[in-house]
Measured scan of single mutants.
Amino acid sequence: MPSETPQAEVGPTGCPHRSGPHSAKGSLEKGSPEDKEAKEPLWIRPDAPSRCTWQLGRPASESPHHHTAPAKSPKILPDILKKIGDTPMVRINKIGKKFGLKCELLAKCEFFNAGGSVKDRISLRMIEDAERDGTLKPGDTIIEPTSGNTGIGLALAAAVRGYRCIIVMPEKMSSEKVDVLRALGAEIVRTPTNARFDSPESHVGVAWRLKNEIPNSHILDQYRNASNPLAHYDTTADEILQQCDGKLDMLVASVGTGGTITGIARKLKEKCPGCRIIGVDPEGSILAEPEELNQTEQTTYEVEGIGYDFIPTVLDRTVVDKWFKSNDEEAFTFARMLIAQEGLLCGGSAGSTVAVAVKAAQELQEGQRCVVILPDSVRNYMTKFLSDRWMLQKGFLKEEDLTEKKPWWWHLRVQELGLSAPLTVLPTITCGHTIEILREKGFDQAPVVDEAGVILGMVTLGNMLSSLLAGKVQPSDQVGKVIYKQFKQIRLTDTLGRLSHILEMDHFALVV
């Protein structure tokens, strides 16, 4: 994948999101292997301009796509893939009243899908469409860049269908997702969380590099694949309309690839034109409109599966009536509230959605109805927002919020430890010299600072030695090549209790 991002070429006709291997024109390309080798690009942008032909009021008969309808489940399912879809609609009884809503608040519980998330729908649909058009064949390999849930859905379907599955996901995604993927037989590649989507090191860039190296491999490409919004247009939206008897006044959905909100909203605009569509985008993402909503100094966020630093091709923002931004604290607070007060075992993005819903639905009156999409299960986040310690460490809970008995030293300040200034190293000294210094002084790690004293990161003896043994660096290389740029900081005025929580999850903390 090139470091400079080429513009994806656009073909003359058809839909841009065809499933299957992508040609340089962004659509299915038939021909000899030699032709494909000559024409197939190194990668295709996940934010390529959409060429979708959908228009409100256009006859369904003019759609270029294969459409399906929700099917009634048999008493005995032939395999677990038949437990994807037909998820329950559940009334939220307490939270709406707590925040003064007059309307009825309903939750579409997508964590009841077989793999635990709304992404099971698009995973199965992308595979079925690729099999139907002859792209996927027995023994082929599926590769997908994902925040985890699409990966789980694909790995689940691949396990049943017999495909090899490789999932490329950023490091910030939970260990629970990784464990589930491994249990399903998927191979996992992790990428830096802070890598831009168009960087060769991003999950998108690495996935395309693997595709170019592995024979008979395919990126189904949830960011561009029409099967993504079509899955929701054909099934999720129809289920909502049936469950609500066609009567709903507002739908609120958090947005990642945009397939969920695009597919549902398009069908609702056709069948229930008075329904307002509300999009939820986390602070630090750029999906919301108008652009002024996205202006923030924050560039990272903890909530998973929603928000991006690019506009995915499948996201149709014209069908969203209003956007709201959400933050991590309210997302996790509301997710825990949904679990504790409503018994809905949902993930953090569901918290984002409901946090926005109780604001947006203030305009609705008694007798009206708001539906929220709860995308995934708490299963993926047992060591994250479900953990009091994690919430404390991230600053989303305060010590006084917890009532468990603490040891005698818990409320003492870090400054009472009488710490001395640490050994520091410059980023320009060599790895070999740094190892000598650390061994001589008896230290395992040291902060790396520039000549102005600005902290650049941390270097550890173990990481340097393993990097040297693996051949990633040489003793003569500058130590700046092996620094940890993500590390926890703590102030002298913070409590030892807070430091204790940090050290339970990290090997060190830097006192500043």
Score class of each variant (00 low, 15 high):
residue 221 D to S: 00
residue 69 A to C: 12
residue 202 S to M: 03
residue 89 M to T: 07
residue 216 N to Q: 07
residue 63 S to L: 02
residue 150 T to Q: 02
residue 34 E to Y: 13
residue 138 P to T: 15
residue 100 G to V: 08
residue 203 H to I: 03
residue 216 N to C: 14
residue 198 D to K: 06
residue 264 I to S: 02
residue 140 D to I: 02
residue 6 P to K: 08
residue 51 R to K: 12
residue 250 M to R: 02
residue 148 G to N: 03
residue 131 E to K: 13
residue 211 K to M: 15
residue 101 L to Q: 03
residue 118 V to L: 12
residue 81 L to C: 07
residue 24 A to Q: 13
residue 246 G to V: 05
residue 173 M to A: 04
residue 2 P to K: 12
residue 227 S to K: 10
residue 234 D to I: 01
residue 40 E to H: 10
residue 252 V to A: 13
residue 43 W to Q: 07
residue 189 V to M: 11
residue 175 S to I: 12
residue 196 R to F: 11
residue 191 T to V: 04
residue 54 W to I: 06
residue 245 D to S: 09
residue 79 D to K: 04
residue 192 P to H: 06
residue 166 I to E: 04
residue 183 A to I: 04
residue 6 P to G: 09
residue 251 L to Y: 07
residue 103 C to I: 06
residue 79 D to G: 11
residue 264 I to T: 12
residue 141 T to Q: 07
residue 28 L to F: 13
residue 112 F to E: 07
residue 240 I to F: 04
residue 211 K to Y: 06
residue 216 N to A: 06
residue 38 A to Q: 04
residue 132 R to Q: 11
residue 85 G to P: 00
residue 27 S to M: 14
residue 8 A to L: 14
residue 255 V to D: 04
residue 82 K to M: 10
residue 243 Q to T: 14
residue 218 H to W: 10
residue 158 A to K: 02
residue 131 E to M: 04
residue 72 K to E: 11
residue 157 A to W: 08
residue 268 L to S: 00
residue 191 T to A: 01
residue 53 T to H: 04
residue 177 K to D: 00
residue 257 T to E: 02
residue 184 L to Y: 08
residue 197 F to Y: 03
residue 30 K to C: 05
residue 60 A to S: 10
residue 124 L to D: 09
residue 154 L to P: 01
residue 176 E to R: 02
residue 255 V to P: 06
residue 125 R to L: 07
residue 234 D to K: 06
residue 258 G to C: 03
residue 182 R to P: 05
residue 10 V to A: 13
residue 212 N to H: 04
residue 160 V to N: 06
residue 74 P to K: 10
residue 203 H to W: 05
residue 182 R to H: 13
residue 115 G to V: 06
residue 99 F to T: 10
residue 141 T to D: 08
residue 84 I to C: 08
residue 44 I to N: 11
residue 69 A to G: 13
residue 23 S to W: 14
residue 6 P to V: 03
residue 239 E to M: 05
residue 245 D to G: 13
residue 102 K to G: 01
residue 246 G to N: 02
residue 231 A to Y: 07
residue 125 R to H: 11
residue 135 T to I: 04
residue 268 L to W: 00
residue 221 D to I: 01
residue 17 H to I: 12
residue 54 W to C: 06
residue 6 P to Q: 09
residue 275 C to L: 06
residue 263 G to C: 00
residue 269 K to Q: 08
residue 35 D to G: 14
residue 59 P to M: 09
residue 18 R to N: 10
residue 220 L to Y: 03
residue 18 R to V: 13
residue 227 S to P: 08
residue 78 P to L: 12
residue 69 A to N: 10
residue 171 E to V: 13
residue 196 R to A: 08
residue 270 E to Q: 13
residue 229 P to D: 06
residue 127 I to H: 01
residue 204 V to L: 03
residue 9 E to S: 06
residue 45 R to T: 04
residue 261 I to Y: 04
residue 155 A to M: 09
residue 155 A to E: 02
residue 45 R to W: 08
residue 235 T to E: 12
residue 267 K to P: 01
residue 164 R to N: 08
residue 273 P to D: 06
residue 245 D to W: 03
residue 187 E to F: 02
residue 38 A to K: 09
residue 63 S to D: 09
residue 6 P to D: 09
residue 190 R to D: 01
residue 210 L to E: 01
residue 76 I to N: 10
residue 104 E to V: 11
residue 64 P to S: 06
residue 95 I to C: 08
residue 60 A to V: 11
residue 140 D to C: 02
residue 93 N to C: 12
residue 45 R to N: 09
residue 224 R to K: 13
residue 130 A to M: 00
residue 113 N to R: 04
residue 207 A to V: 02
residue 81 L to I: 13
residue 90 V to T: 07
residue 271 K to W: 06
residue 11 G to Q: 01
residue 233 Y to S: 01
residue 55 Q to N: 15
residue 73 S to P: 13
residue 61 S to M: 04
residue 180 V to Y: 02
residue 227 S to L: 03
residue 34 E to G: 12
residue 181 L to C: 03
residue 137 K to S: 03
residue 112 F to A: 04
residue 206 V to C: 07
residue 259 G to N: 00
residue 95 I to M: 12
residue 215 P to T: 06
residue 142 I to Y: 00
residue 211 K to G: 10
residue 243 Q to V: 07
residue 235 T to D: 10
residue 206 V to D: 02
residue 38 A to R: 09
residue 66 H to P: 07
residue 220 L to C: 03
residue 235 T to S: 15
residue 60 A to N: 11
residue 21 P to L: 12
residue 27 S to F: 06
residue 35 D to S: 08
residue 114 A to N: 06
residue 216 N to R: 02
residue 243 Q to I: 03
residue 83 K to N: 13
residue 126 M to I: 11
residue 24 A to M: 10
residue 60 A to L: 11
residue 230 L to W: 04
residue 269 K to S: 03
residue 265 A to F: 01
residue 162 G to W: 03
residue 173 M to K: 06
residue 15 C to P: 09
residue 149 N to S: 02
